[in-house]
Design a protein around this nucleic acid. Structure first.
Lengths: 318, 318
DNA sequence: TTGTAAGCGTTATCAT
DNA sequence: ATGATAACGCTTACAA
């Protein structure tokens, strides 16, 4: 059974197709009786206009793309929820794509979204090159959770998280502390800086750092024996790392639960583990990001101003 | 700057627009040199064809809708990941929507998806009425994680999970056991049935049941004092419930960690809590579901056969 | 082998 | 107040 079109409704209600269109778009010059007759017919037949035809006519597709580098981290999946919610509030749908940390897949997705005439793209990107591709194609987009100078980005100021943890360790007067996690991270930099600042009271006796990779557990299990147990406090660069590290430590007979533990992300993991964690303002980031994007799309003013919005994380003590 | 169209490419490469179209769709009757000339021009200008025009011509939109009743349960967000992956494998994109357990929002989403001419819909539905609406509109769809007799559904056989737990409790020779969770659930039914079967060796001394609601924690905190501490084993109807229950119990000074605890869903929660849990085969469900849907869409044979596929869960002991 | 033209379902511009 | 018609970007039947 073919889908109903305006033409069908026109025939059924004995008017021209353009009148049906006028009724649907609340055009003023339609006789009341005619409008009612047509509306009744539309109701009865549950007619749904074809958005693709509208898009072809130049109307907004009312749809955004959300392209994430990956979904392994529950964190990005959470983002999907927030982005969807925010977009929906404003009457937009979202196409969700996973680029699996692969530049080519990401490019493929971006192309696909351009073909579909999305109004804009929200992304946690893999490749700057691909972002430039979007720019070249005049496709509005924002970057979530990474600070890219030359384009609109909404991100957590990770260094502040590190500083917060360091301050907390100082307050607690821990003499020996440890950092465990990503080598090149603003979290670590902030932590280091604050620990070594003027009112220095403690030392990082242990820093077990590594680069994130596919098999995180393996990477960690190799490092776990390097633990310096004289440390009183441990700062993990993510909840996931904290979780795996604790498990691996347990395997070799080390229980860290009586130490002061602080992780990062404040996901379900740290909630369940009941350890402190630095919370990233994901919902707010998504909210602000989607809003700016839609602002730029709908108002298309100030299209030349770049917004780099860094939000502060918050240490949640448990 | 306007988006490039086939017409532009045609002018640039000095051929007709239909020749460009033929080149792009690998039509056989195109002279080799012409094809190369056109392809070069397409390359150089990074031309992307407009999919909406194709859809209007009757081509498949190559897009599916995923409508979930809600995303509070991390479980459904996980589904997004699996569905996206499976759809992508087959060259389809997905539009993700949250109906927030609301019949009207769900209807709204379904209409929206029909308007967009999606090829099909995957849903964890709120309302049977809305599913009938889809059916009436001849929109192919499958139901994920609920068994609805009259339509294609892919779900976990929850009662089997309950039975598995009961058997486990029997094996362990626990005399007094408890069920804590959803009142009306196949999990509970299966559990009860097996506990009370021929080779009965134990009793359910405690069953704290309730209906799920918005404020789960509140519901649970009211029930937690009813705990029968003489029970040796507890079966929680979900990981989330187990987590909240344990927390609330702790608040009133009860530590259940030395009891035998089994939850349901085997999400990150039970992994982190290190308690046993019944795993639902989410990935497989998504995989099978999306595949059947696409099968029905592309082959459109056997459109009258209904597939109700129940997969068994698996008790993970920790 | 290639070009011309119709048509997909809308909206908007003209007439009437 | 309403109807006819062009146009959006594409595919395809038909003509050349």
């Amino acid at each position: 059974m073919r889908k109903l079109t305006m033409k069908d409704i026109a025939i059924l209600s004995d008017v021209s197709q353009s009148t049906v269109s006028r009724v649907l778009s609340n055009h003023p010059h339609v006789k009341k009786e005619v409008r009612e007759k047509v509306l009744k017919c539309i109701e009865e037949n549950e007619f749904l206009p074809d958005i693709n035809a509208k898009i072809m006519r130049g109307e907004s597709a009312k749809i955004l793309g959300f392209v994430s580098a990956g979904f392994e981290n529950p964190y990005y999946l959470e983002m999907v929820g927030y982005v969807e919610k925010e977009a929906r509030k404003r009457g937009y749908s979202i196409i969700v794509m996973n680029s699996e940390d692969d530049e080519l897949i990401e490019k493929y997705h971006f192309k696909e979204l351009l073909t579909r005439h999305v109004d804009g793209i929200i992304c946690a990107p893999v490749s700057l090159k691909n972002l430039r591709f979007l720019k070249k194609n005049k496709c509005p987009f924002i970057v979530l959770n990474e600070n890219i100078e030359w384009t609109d980005s909404f991100y957590t100021v990770l260094s502040i998280g590190g500083i917060q943890v360091a301050k907390y360790f100082k307050d607690k007067k821990f003499k020996k502390v440890a950092y465990i996690g990503e080598e090149k991270s603003e979290k670590y930099k902030g932590f280091l800086k604050e620990i070594n600042s003027e009112n220095k009271i403690n030392n990082i006796e242990d820093n077990i750092t590594f680069n994130l990779g596919k098999n995180l557990r393996e990477i960690i299990s190799k490092k776990v024996n390097k633990l310096n147990l004289s440390c009183e406090a441990f700062f993990f660069s993510s909840d996931t790392i904290a979780f795996i590290f604790l498990e691996e430590a347990k395997k070799i007979g080390i229980d860290l639960r009586d130490k002061e533990l602080v992780a990062f992300d404040n996901t379900l993991i740290s909630k369940v583990l009941q350890i402190s964690s630095v919370e990233q303002p994901m919902e707010l980031l998504a909210e602000k990001g989607v809003n700016l994007l839609l602002e730029k799309i709908t108002k298309d003013i100030k299209l030349d101003e770049i917004y780099n919005v860094g939000l502060y994380p918050k240490l949640i003590i448990r």
